[in-house]
Nucleic acid binder design. Structure first.
Length: 589
RNA sequence: UGGGGUAUGGUGUAACGGUAGCACGACUGACUCUGGAUCAGUUAGUCUAGGUUCGAAUCCUAGUACCCCAGCCA
């Protein structure tokens, strides 16, 4: 097989090296470890696709594990949405089953006992102590960027006392915040994470999974490495901000491994698995924000209609907008992965969904802003069923019938009384093709005498062009426009979505302002449109291309009486570019 | 001002001392019953300054810019 040498990203190179050296026995086991404190966004999709993709590529395994170590912030609603989103994206974790959404899902909280035991082991090894300092005192004694911290007065408690106190912390003898368990590392370290970090805090809080069993909860830094270790994760892939935590992550595992041996003959038994943490740059996209905090604010303050508002960069938002998992996967693959803090242009994502929908979406004709056209030489009582191709990119999608009659609607934009050069659509005396129907020529413009507003257009059709075909005389037209038969048109609701923010970087904020100042007031436009009858039986979630306009998805707000369609993305529009340039030329001249 | 990272066309991403390539965008043109799609072409880049070398994006030295770290968040 002639195999093309595909370029490798830095993570693949690291894994390849591990496989060469045999560090993990040529195994690859990755995971996606979300905290259930918000909805997943497109940045998480990058991580999911990366982790899952590596597992697939190397024939390894992939876990979905909830990092549920902080009961104060975590909720079941988020758990459910995250599971749904990861499934929808197509990532398959160990133990995934169709009949039970939670099958195979792992919880950090299941390891609480094991983590507790290791904490006791660290105390016994003299590497951890119970500290009575308040939060404020801890932060004051931690030092600054340039000054080392100072040791806690409780740093040198005896092993026995620490053991006793820690046990009583667990039993619930002390109030929240009164004590912590801290690792005894180095108050002089230039890395703050090593200045005696807190391992456990007291939190009398009911946990969504373990209930009231625990009133001490492990900190992320203490817990995370062990979660990976227990599961045999080989490559703990995370974002850049955890780079400074890697020495701590390694310290915890190495410290547990002190006095342990590979064969289990050491005083503390067998060594535990030590994963390799690898950090990559999180995804940033233009015209949106990606922080959970800000997304939560948009939802809570009602700037959008929920986490799955189609303008949100959440996975559920994109799903409702009409995005496909394939498009998101392709996007995540195409943007690559590196350590450089980059900002991806939104058009990359839009391009990915156009690409996929162009292949799979059936076409329909929908008029957003109707202008009546009367075809004066067409019989008043006649209706013809025109055959229309459902998808020119996919012959197997077949054809459908579209009714044609004397009175039709076209897009108001598709007529101009005084057209500029290069305008190919309808104008007085001009001829265009009605897609799949006939050539028509504009003969009259009927206006409201009072306002001058164009009320309707009169036109004549050429019977020799039936089906939209070129006539035998060889005549051609440059423009083809969409239409719906007036008598057969079905009203539908359409939601036109645009960027949520009108600045590439919404966090570029004027002094005293907020990112909310950068919200696009026109991110949603509601339209009453007229659709061809074939759209009437569209099902929820079904995706279509409305010819010449864009891709649309049937929203769950649809009723039997009225369809609601969300615009996923527009079609590329070169005319708008020409149009935008034209006035400049006039001005310049 | 301590520590940890990162710098390649407009935007991303390759190159592992040997012709700076690819994708997206932008711009031309061809084709077209969607001003869509498709096809062809053009455009444009190694953070700076020195050094090593026959040869440097890559190695060395010194700078510059940006990101992360002082939660009992993750």
């Amino acid at each position: 097989m002639a195999e093309e040498k595909s370029s490798r990203n830095f993570i693949q190179e690291i894994i390849d090296e591990h496989n060469r050296s045999g560090r993990f026995g040529r195994k690859v086991h990755t995971r996606f470890p979300p905290e259930p404190n918000g909805y997943l966004h497109i940045g998480h999709a990058k991580s999911i696709c990366l982790n899952h993709g590596l597992a697939v590529e190397y024939g390894g395994q992939f876990n979905l594990r909830f990092d549920d170590t902080n009961p104060e912030k975590e909720e079941q609603e988020y758990v459910n949405s995250i599971i749904e989103d990861v499934r929808w994206l197509g990532a398959k974790w160990q133990g995934l089953r169709d009949d039970d959404p939670q099958a195979g899902v792992i919880w950090s909280s299941n390891y609480f006992q094991q983590m507790y035991d290791w904490a006791v082991e660290l105390i016994r090894k003299g590497k951890a102590y119970v500290c009575d300092l308040s939060g404020e005192e801890v932060s004051r004694t931690r030092g600054t960027l340039t000054r080392p911290g100072t040791a806690s007065p409780y740093r040198d408690r005896s092993v026995e006392e620490n053991l006793d106190l820690f046990e009583r912390m667990r039993k619930g003898e002390f109030p929240d915040g009164s004590k912590t368990l801290r690792a005894k590392i180095d108050m002089n370290s230039p890395n703050f994470n090593l200045r005696d970090p807190i391992m456990y805090r007291i939190m009398h809080e009911t946990h969504h999974n373990t209930g009231d069993k625990w009133c001490i909860y492990p900190m992320y830094d203490w817990a995370h490495g062990f979660e990976d270790s227990i599961e045999g994760i080989t490559h703990s892939i995370c974002t850049l901000e955890f780079e400074n935590h890697r020495p701590l992550y390694d310290w915890f595992i190495n410290t547990v491994n002190e006095g342990r041996t590979d064969d289990g003959s050491g005083p503390w038994g067998r060594k535990i698995h030590h994963p390799q943490q690898i950090e990559f740059a999180r995804l940033n996209l233009t015209y949106t924000v990606m922080s959970k905090r800000l997304l939560l604010q948009l939802v809570k303050e009602g700037h959008v209609q929920g986490w799955d508002d189609p303008r949100m960069p959440t996975i559920s938002g994109f799903r409702r907008r009409g995005y496909t998992p394939e498009a998101i996967q392709n996007f995540c693959r195409d943007i690559g992965v590196a350590k450089f803090n980059s900002v991806i242009e939104m058009v990359r994502l839009e391009n990915a969904i156009r690409d996929h929908l162009n292949q799979i979406a059936q076409r329909r004709m929908v008029v957003m802003d109707p202008l009546k056209v009367v075809i004066t030489n067409y019989p008043a009582d006649q209706v013809e069923e025109m055959e229309a191709v459902n998808n020119p990119e996919d012959a197997s999608a077949g054809t459908r019938r579209v009714p044609f009659s004397r009175e039709i609607y076209i897009e108001r934009d598709d007529f101009m009384e005084n057209p500029p050069k290069k305008y190919f659509r309808l104008a007085p005396g001009a001829e265009v093709r009605l897609r799949y129907a006939y050539f028509v020529k504009c003969t009259d413009v009927v206006k409201d005498p009072a306002t001058g507003e164009i009320k309707e257009i009169h036109a004549t059709f050429d019977p020799a062009t039936r089906g939209g075909n070129n006539p035998p005389d060889g005549r051609k037209v440059k423009g083809t426009i969409h239409w719906v038969s007036a008598a057969h048109a079905r009203p539908i609701d359409v939601r036109l979505y645009d960027h949520l923010f009108n600045k590439e970087n919404p966090m570029e904020i004027p002094v005293g302002g907020s990112f909310l100042n950068n919200m696009n007031p026109n991110s949603l436009t509601l339209v009453n449109a007229l659709a061809e009858p074939a759209l009437a039986d569209a099902k929820m979630g079904e995706r279509f291309q409305f010819e010449r306009q864009g891709y649309f998805c049937v929203d769950r707000d649809s009723t039997a009486q009225r369809l609601v369609c969300n615009r996923t993305v527009t079609l590329k529009d070169t005319w708008s570019k020409i149009e935008a340039q034209t006035p400049l030329i006039i001005k310049g001249g």
